[in-house]
Nucleic acid binder design. Structure first.
Lengths: 252, 252
DNA sequence: TCCTCAGTAATTGTCCTACAAATTTGAAAA
DNA sequence: TTTTCAAATTTGTAGGACAATTACTGAGGA
């Protein structure tokens, strides 16, 4: 079966703000990113609605609907005569797909967030792998195996991330737990960050691929214990690299 | 120190939709609950904006802003000439505090969700306890201990839930991981469901209290391994009860 | 100088109307 | 039966008016 396409696993280029394409979506994205990037620090007041109308070139209707969406995600809070203030970070819906996606992968400020996300992965993913070993369907097992084997450094970074993401996302889905499955957004963000922040060396890539295949085979064989252990080992290694990366990013 | 107030741990009666109080918030809550309760099944089309204007007695502006917020949480999707359809359940932001809160604790339909949430708790709470044993501040350890000891069946259900919630929420906060901490919404929802669906017997309550205090003392002593183990044991027991409850709820 | 209090101004909240854009529907034609 | 095209319908955007709330200002008094 050598005729299988190399670039099989595509990155989800289309992001999924469930808002319809249009001015409101664009405005939400624009403001959401600016806030997540720290352009407006905690407690800062956003420009008035009128000013946003002028600067963004949309109607007040659009500005208001966008602001309401951001309120719903906990990023800002509005009050009459006061304006729109940026909420303290604790109040943000950090697990919201959009909020996760809006963090700037290239910003050192968000390195801390990715460190926490990596810790979370270390908690969830071994269990997800164990559940997947039991619950995965035939086709899911195939996808996981194929994705693991598709991690070829030769194919370019985009293809690698695509396969890597598909591997982890499918395991979460195969766990059979829908809430667990939603954490794939987190994994995706962590991946973008780590790929953006560091180039892995070819030997590291080779190890990564072997580890992924090992996990996939354990899941395929239905061995929950083995799958959990291998996933944990892989992520521990991952976390060690992430911590080193975060430390170097923060000290700059 | 017997003069400490019994009803010390209050339930968070005020819900925290970060939307300002007003017509928009009310409309979001109204529609969000109806959708989460299954009044509009997947793929169903919501009433037109005009009809909502009439039936809810608010302006179209308000209806539209509310709908946009719900779009942002993945509950619905809008299109010109088509209306607002309810998205498939997979697309909902199941970890959004509001979405979690909107599930009807008394509906048997949502029992499945709470089963999944209970599984999730079993995954992350033992680790949170272990982290808390290491990272908790002095006052956090005190709060955890006090909350565990405040689980008195005599004080009434509301007070019990309050103490129970404070116990688990403080542990998550003390873990030092902000994303982990946000899962306290999940715990709160599970708690409301289980307390609403079943009355625990006094002996069960006594066991529950002893278990909580055991975890709290392990955290207080800084023994991460012990804390993890005790939390897991407690939750395994909890899950057994939850599964029994879900089974009986579903077969009705 | 500092405090109190009432008035004023500023900002978001709600309502309304009008029109644009897109897409389903249905009828007409090949 | 299939294709094409027009019409009707529903959400999307724009913009204006006023209400409600509250931060700010300044006058007056202690």
């Amino acid at each position: 079966m050598d005729n299988k396409k190399r670039n099989f696993f595509e990155l989800p280029d289309k992001v999924l703000t469930s808002l319809p394409t249009g001015a409101v979506k664009d405005t939400v994205e624009h403001l959401g990113k600016k806030i997540a990037h720290g352009d407006y620090p905690t407690g800062a007041v956003l420009p008035r609605e009128d000013e946003l109308v002028d600067s963004l070139g949309v109607s007040r209707t659009v500005v208001r609907e966008a602001i309401k969406v951001l309120c719903g995600k906990g990023l800002i809070r509005t009050a009459r005569r006061y304006g729109s203030r940026v909420c303290p970070f604790d109040d943000w819906n950090l697990l919201d797909p959009d909020v996760i996606r809006w963090h700037d992968p290239k910003s050192p400020q968000t390195a801390r967030i990715y460190a926490e996300a990596t810790d979370l992965r270390l908690i969830f993913e071994p269990e997800a792998a164990a559940l997947a070993a039991v619950n995965a369907s035939r086709s899911q097992r195939d996808t996981i195996l194929a994705a693991a084997r598709a991690i070829h450094p030769l194919d370019g970074q985009s293809s690698m991330i695509g396969a890597d993401y598909m591997f982890h996302a499918t395991i979460l889905q195969a766990s059979g737990n829908q809430m667990l499955s939603q954490l794939q957004n987190l994994i995706y963000a962590v991946m973008l960050f780590s790929y953006a922040a560091s180039q892995r060396t070819p030997p590291e890539e080779k190890v990564a691929r072997r580890n992924h295949v090992g996990v996939a085979e354990a899941i395929d064989s239905g061995d929950a214990e083995l799958a959990r252990g291998r996933m944990r080992d892989m992520l521990v290694l991952n976390k060690a690299m992430a911590d080193k990366l975060v430390a170097s990013t923060l000290q700059e």
